[in-house]
Simulated scan of single mutants.
Amino acid sequence: MTVELNHTIVPARDPQASAQFLADILGLSVDPPLAHFTPVTLANQVSLDYDQLDDFEPHHYAFMVSEEEFDAALARIQDGGIAHYADPACQENGQIYRSERTEGRRGTYFRDPDGHLMEILTPGGAGS
């Protein structure tokens, strides 16, 4: 058997709201509760299990999406008035990045309701 990531815990002050925020951006659904977790399952079957905590440090989560999914997610970010940035320091407001090193990979960063730094990025490569 190969080693695979199965799930990760995402601390949140309001797990349902934070899970719904991410699901809405990515065009996914929030799964039914699992014990005290609010999961969002990705296409590769890895789940983000939102758990209620009041005190935590923000984390970074990056999501590989297709070109079409990127365009749709970016439109939802923009339509929702959510600040997004071309850099992880959140200095280049309202922009996306393009990486020549990865043959046209596009990406952007945004914060969720709990301050976690979320990133969407495309694979890049030929035809990007």
Results as ranks from 00 to 15, higher is better:
2 T>V: 14
2 T>C: 03
3 V>R: 02
5 L>Q: 09
5 L>P: 04
8 T>P: 04
8 T>F: 08
9 I>G: 00
11 P>F: 03
14 D>M: 01
15 P>A: 10
16 Q>C: 04
16 Q>D: 07
17 A>Y: 00
18 S>R: 01
22 L>W: 03
27 G>W: 03
30 V>S: 09
30 V>C: 06
31 D>T: 01
31 D>G: 11
33 P>C: 05
34 L>G: 00
38 T>Q: 12
39 P>G: 12
40 V>G: 14
42 L>W: 01
42 L>P: 05
43 A>T: 15
43 A>L: 06
43 A>W: 06
47 S>G: 12
48 L>D: 05
48 L>N: 06
50 Y>Q: 01
53 L>Q: 14
56 F>Y: 10
57 E>W: 04
57 E>V: 06
60 H>G: 12
61 Y>Q: 12
62 A>N: 11
62 A>K: 11
66 S>C: 05
67 E>I: 02
71 D>N: 09
71 D>K: 03
75 A>Y: 02
76 R>N: 10
77 I>Q: 05
77 I>S: 06
80 G>V: 07
81 G>E: 03
81 G>Q: 02
83 A>V: 04
85 Y>F: 13
86 A>G: 15
86 A>Y: 02
89 A>V: 10
90 C>A: 14
92 E>I: 15
93 N>T: 10
97 Y>E: 04
97 Y>C: 10
98 R>F: 13
101 R>A: 15
102 T>W: 11
103 E>S: 12
107 G>H: 06
110 F>K: 05
111 R>A: 14
111 R>V: 08
113 P>L: 09
113 P>A: 09
116 H>S: 05
118 M>A: 06
120 I>E: 04
121 L>F: 13
126 A>P: 01
